[in-house]
Amino acid sequence: MADDVDRGPVLVLLHGLAGTSGVWAGLIAELAERWPGTPVAPDLPGHGRSAPLDRYSFGGIAARVAADLDPTRPAVVLGHSLGGVVALALASGWFGVPVTAAVCLGVKVSWSPDDLAKAAALAGKPPKTFENRENAASWARKLAGLPADFADSVTLGPSGWRAALDPRAFAVGRPDLPGLLAAARCPVTLAAGERDPMSPAEHLRALTPHPVILPGLGHNAHVEDPAALWPLLERVL
C-alpha cells in the first residue's frame, strides 16, 4: 500500500441508489494500467454487503464512507447518481477526507413532488422477495436501472431471494446541490450521458456552465462504456 500512496491519490468509486460496488468492475479493469494507485469501490450503506443505517441522509452515507478511508491520503472521488451527491458531501471537507477532485456522474438535479412521493413509497415497503435468484436479480437490476445482462447483487433471506438493498435508502430525499457545490473545497466536474433522462444537460447547466456530456450514453454510462469515463479522470489526475 505504501507504493500506492507514493504513486498518486486513491480513487474512490461510489455507486448509485440500489446499485452495488459491482457496477465499477468494467472501469476498474479499464484503469488497471492507467490510474497510479488502487481504486476503492465500497458498497454504500444498506447496499450489497454493507450494513444499513438507522436513518438515511447524504451526510450519514458520507460519514460511513469516510470512516473507511485513510484521512492522510488525498482522494479523487467519482460518484454516480446518489454516489455523486455523496462525492460532493465528501468534497466539502466536513468528513475529514482530503478530496482533491470530485467527479459527479448522472446526478439527478430536478425533483418533482411525484418523484419524491414515489421514492418515499419505495422506502416504506418491505423488501420484495422471490422464489428464485433470477427473478430477484431482475428486480435488483430494475431498481438500479441496470442492463438486462448485468449480474448485480442479491441475497437469500428467510422469505426468499431479494435485492441486496435496504429499501429505506430510497428515503434519502432531495439533495441541496447548489449548497453542496458552494461548500466544495476542490474542483468539481458534473457529467452525464447524452441520453440520461435523470440528468439532462440543460439541468446540469443550471449548476455549471460547462458540464461534460458523454455522447450516446445513458444514466449508467460507467456500465455502458467504462472507457468513456477515462477522460473525466485523466483531466483531474
Rank of each mutant, 00 (worst) to 15 (best):
L181K: 06
N132Y: 01
S21D: 05
V172E: 05
P197W: 05
T20Y: 04
L90I: 06
D3K: 13
A164R: 06
A25T: 14
P175Y: 02
A91M: 07
P147G: 06
W139G: 00
L217H: 11
D196C: 09
L53E: 03
D176S: 05
P215A: 13
I28P: 00
P158K: 11
E224V: 11
L143M: 10
A169Q: 02
R141S: 05
R141C: 08
A184Q: 11
R168I: 09
A32K: 11
F130Y: 13
P209E: 10
V5W: 10
D43I: 01
T189M: 07
D43Y: 01
A120Y: 03
R141I: 04
D43P: 04
P167G: 00
L232N: 10
A2F: 14
A29S: 15
P42I: 05
A87M: 04
A29H: 14
L90E: 06
D196I: 10
G83D: 11
F95C: 08
D4Q: 13
H210P: 00
L181D: 10
G60H: 09
G22V: 09
R49M: 09
G157P: 09
V99T: 07
L181A: 08
P231V: 09
V23P: 00
T155S: 11
A66T: 06
L44F: 09
G124E: 13
A67Q: 12
H219N: 11
A119N: 12
L207P: 02
D6Y: 13
R162I: 02
A29Y: 02
D114W: 00
L116P: 01
I213Y: 02
G19V: 00
G16R: 03
L204T: 05
A32D: 11
P200K: 08
L82W: 12
I28R: 15
A102Y: 05
A227K: 12
G84E: 08
A120G: 14
F95I: 03
D6Q: 14
A148S: 14
V188K: 05
R49I: 10
